[in-house]
Amino acid sequence: MHQRTDWHDLPESLREAIAARTGAVLAARTVSEGMNSALSAILDTTNGTVFVKGIRTGHPGIVTQAREAMINPHVQPVAPVLLWHIADTTGWDVLGFEHIEGHHPDYAPGSPDLPAVLAAIDALGNLPCPDLPIKDATRWRSYLDGADTEPLSGETLLHTDYNPSNLLIGDGRMARIVDWAWPTRGAAWIDPCCLLVWLIASGHTPEQAEAQVSQTRAWATAPPAGLDLFARANVRLWDEIAGNNPQDWTRRMATAARAWADARLVPLSR
C-alpha cells in the first residue's frame, strides 16, 4: 500500500504539468480509498473536475499505470475516460480521468447496489477483448499445483479485482469500473467469481453469493469443474495475500475464499 501524497506536497513541476492539461487547480481533495497509488485526488479546476492518480517513476507498481493507459480506450463506457497521461518527465507517472460522481457499492445482502454491479459485469463481458499484451487467466496456474488451467481460458476481457473501492455507482443503472491494474483475457465466468468472493466476505453465504452472480450472463457458461478449479486457486491466492499483508480485510477474503471452496466440496490438498 502506498503512502498518500497530497496535492500541495507534489513537486511544483508536476503540479504545473497537470495544470497545463486541466486549467488552474482551484481545490484538491485527497482520496483515501484504494491502495495502489501514492497520488489519488479529485481536482476542481477552471475547466471542470478531474480525478488524478499517480506513482513515482522508480516504484515497481508503475507498470500498472501503463496497463491502465493501454486498456482504457477499450473499456468504454464501462470505465471513466482517460483524458491524459504524464510519464517520465517529473519523477512521477500520472493519469488524469474524467471525474465520476458516485459512491462505492455496498456488497452486503439485500444491498440496492448489487444490480448495478452485476450490470457492469455484463456490460464488460459484451466488449471485445483487444489484441493487446494483457495478462492471461493462466496467471492463476501457480496456485493449482500443475492442474490443467484450460477451463480458465477464453477470449473475454476481465477486470478481476472487484474490491468495492474499484467501482463507482452514480445516477445510471450500471456501476463504472475503475483501477484497471490487472486487465486479463480469460473465461467469461471468472469475473463473476471474483465478485462472488467479495460478496461472501461482505456477509453472503456461498449459496447466496452464487445466486447473486448467477444473474450475470457469463455465469451460465461456467463448467462446474472450472468453478471448483478457480475456487481452489482463490483459497491459495488469498491465503498468500493475507499471509504477506495480514489485515482484517485480507483475512476476511481468505476466510471467504475457503468458505466458497468448502461449500463446493473442493479438495484443497490436491
Rank of each mutant, 00 (worst) to 15 (best):
A257Y: 12
L196Y: 06
R251K: 14
A233W: 09
R4T: 08
M1T: 03
S165W: 10
L43F: 07
V235T: 08
I100F: 06
T184P: 01
I241L: 14
A209Q: 07
T149M: 10
V117S: 03
G186S: 10
S40A: 15
P115L: 09
T64M: 13
R251A: 12
V94T: 11
P267D: 15
W249Y: 13
L127Y: 02
T205D: 08
P206K: 03
G172A: 14
R264H: 09
M174C: 14
L158V: 03
H59Y: 07
P130Y: 09
P115C: 07
D179T: 03
H204I: 01
R176H: 11
N36S: 15
R4S: 14
I169F: 05
P267N: 08
G61Q: 10
M253L: 15
H2D: 11
D44A: 12
E210T: 09
W7P: 06
L196A: 14
G125D: 08
H99Y: 15
P192D: 08
A17F: 03
T57I: 10
L168N: 02
R4M: 06
G102Y: 05
N166E: 05
V235W: 05
V117I: 05
E101F: 02
H99C: 12
P164C: 04
L10T: 03
V235E: 04
A231M: 04
A201R: 12
